[in-house]
């Protein structure tokens, strides 16, 4: 029993870690792209397309998204159950979420700072890497922790469709076998993980805020 809980916790961590990493890797650049295209006159059309896509993906409930993604998951991952398939689904769901959070934070950058950067002759790339991201870093850390916590809950939902992890354990034992103590342990661990992320995110972000 303890063994099973540990194994499931490990799987949950595995899924959250990799999907979190991948969502950041793709979500943050997408956020940058949204921010940049929304601000340059000639790129309004690109923004409209990206913005609409992000909205569509964000409004599909996760469980439906998993169903819709089945054919693609099968082709790309080779299977539709297990942690790796879940990571794919989680990442697709989290990228637009991360991108939107990042974009919102970028939009809070004061216009005076943008003026400073422009007047010092930054190229687009220098602006993004040396001003936009560093200046909003504390907010981006909080965004990332919000997204990770979201991923924790999503892994639990994914558990219902065979992703493994604490969610699946809770459903197998609780829903099918009425062992409520296992469900309770799963919930406690999930809450602890979320709390831990929340705490760490807040700590890091406060330390970075000057």
């Amino acid at each position: 029993m303890v063994e099973q809980l540990l194994k499931a916790t490990g799987e949950t961590f595995y899924m959250v870690f990799f999907s979190g990493f991948l969502s950041l890797l793709f979500g943050l650049p997408l956020g940058v792209l949204l921010y940049i295209t929304s601000r340059s006159e000639g790129k309004k059309k690109i923004y409209f397309v990206l913005d609409t896509l992000v909205n569509i993906f964000r409004s599909i409930p996760f469980i439906i998204l998993v169903l819709l993604l089945i054919p693609l998951t099968k082709v790309l991952i080779g299977t539709i159950i297990g942690s790796n398939a879940a990571i794919f689904n989680l990442t697709i769901a989290a990228i637009p979420f991360m991108a939107r959070l990042a974009e919102n934070s970028f939009n809070t950058l004061p216009s005076g700072i943008i003026d400073s950067a422009r007047s010092l002759g930054t190229t687009n790339w220098q602006f993004i890497s040396k001003v936009l991201i560093p200046e909003t870093l504390p907010d981006q850390i909080s965004n990332f922790s919000v997204m990770l916590i979201n991923l924790v809950t999503y892994t639990a939902i994914a558990g219902a469709v065979g992703a493994g992890g604490l969610g699946q354990l809770a459903i197998n034992y609780g829903y099918y076998r009425f062992q409520w103590d296992v469900v309770l342990y799963c919930v406690i661990i999930l809450v602890l993980i979320s709390q831990l992320i929340q705490f760490a995110g807040k700590k890091i972000s406060t330390n970075l805020r000057k």
């Binding site: 005076g112 003026d115 200046e135 000057k210």
Partner: peptide
């Protein structure tokens, strides 16, 4: 350029 409201980078020393 030196701006009226300075506009320094907040997260840089």
């Amino acid at each position: 350029v030196v701006f009226q409201h300075f506009n320094l980078f907040r997260n840089k020393n």
